[in-house]
Design a protein around this nucleic acid. Structure first.
Lengths: 194, 194
DNA sequence: GTCTATAACGAGATAGAC
DNA sequence: GTCTATCTCGTTATAGAC
């Protein structure tokens, strides 16, 4: 007997949805099982059935986030030119910010020293994967003449990640998401060919 | 009778020293009065004498940090050309990172939604002050031809803050402070005149 | 798979002696 | 200004019934 199709997610995915939003808005140390439980109308104990420890929950959180992010990068890779891929990359960040969220791994990067080891490794891998993807796009764009920049593509890649993560971080405290867009535009403009 | 001169700080300043380092490494929600007390060899209760609530401690933390940062900007303002001022600005960040710390306000920006209101306002003001200082330097440099960039100086200023804060954030999780230097170099290079 | 109940601990904070 | 002692609350986590 096949399971009923419903429009609502349930169980673990639903827990991850709520935890993810809380983590992106308040940080991993800024929410508790009680917060998730009250929002879902269940008890804390039932959450522990799905994620025995908060470290397990956090690890699952990053894993899902990184997978989805990687899928978004795969979609961006289908675009024609490399400038469009960079724009799509920046738009990923913009979309997160529009939902009043910080990038999950950017948030966890701040809390890095307090995170369980498994989470630390996963956060670092997220940035390394992003860096590799950007490095490839940047190199291709420079060869094709659609992008222009000096120095190692790897450094330019980290500058892009840093600029976008930092712009999210700062524009959130300035209470003005449009400042992110201005900073992101200024950042991408510096890769335009003269 | 004048107070004895000693090489050791004591009382409130010393508490702030320890709390500041903890906040910059672990976040404001990542340390407790117990952490400070054990490091200073005093009790939690005596800390509450100096800072009745953690919000008071946090507010004092930002106030001192912003004052010192402002003084550093004043010193940078005495440099001759605007390119040197930008380099000095970036070096401020680099020095913090070398001590294994995140910028205090960058860290607090991540935790923004969980902070007491007074702290939120102070964090936003820190970034606004930085932005104003950079905007002035950038405008002057563009007029003098020592700096080159397109678009509003305000957007370029926020890009600089974002890039430096983001590079600190990310290079800390990558476990490689030299990645900050590479990103900062790439960032500043984009303001060099052709 | 979800519940009630509770354990075990750490957090911020206060009272009052010294 | 620092101490001991205590309070209250929130946190993660577990045991065991349903």
């Amino acid at each position: 007997m096949a399971r009923e199709m419903t429009t609502e997610t349930s169980g673990a995915p639903r827990i991850l949805d709520v935890a993810e939003r809380l983590a992106q808005r308040r940080g991993f140390n800024g929410f508790s099982y009680a917060d998730i439980a009250s929002e879902l109308g269940v008890t804390k104990a039932s959450l522990h059935y799905h994620f025995a420890s908060k470290a397990d929950l956090g690890t699952a959180l990053i894993a899902r986030y990184a997978t989805r992010f990687g899928e978004a990068l795969d979609r961006a890779d289908e675009l024609e030119d490399e400038r469009a891929k960079l724009a799509a990359y920046a738009e990923l960040y913009a979309g997160v910010l529009r939902d009043d969220r910080m990038c999950l791994c950017g948030m966890l990067a701040a809390e890095y020293e307090t995170l369980p080891e498994a989470m630390q490794g996963a956060v670092a891998r997220f940035f390394e994967d992003n860096e590799r993807w950007l490095e490839r796009v940047l190199e291709a764009g420079r060869e094709q003449g659609t992008l222009a920049f000096a120095g190692p593509a790897r450094d330019a890649a980290l500058l892009l990640i840093s600029g976008l993560e930092g712009a999210m971080l700062v524009s959130r405290s300035l209470g003005d998401p449009s400042r992110f867009d201005a900073a992101a535009r200024a950042l991408l403009a510096r890769f335009d060919p003269a």
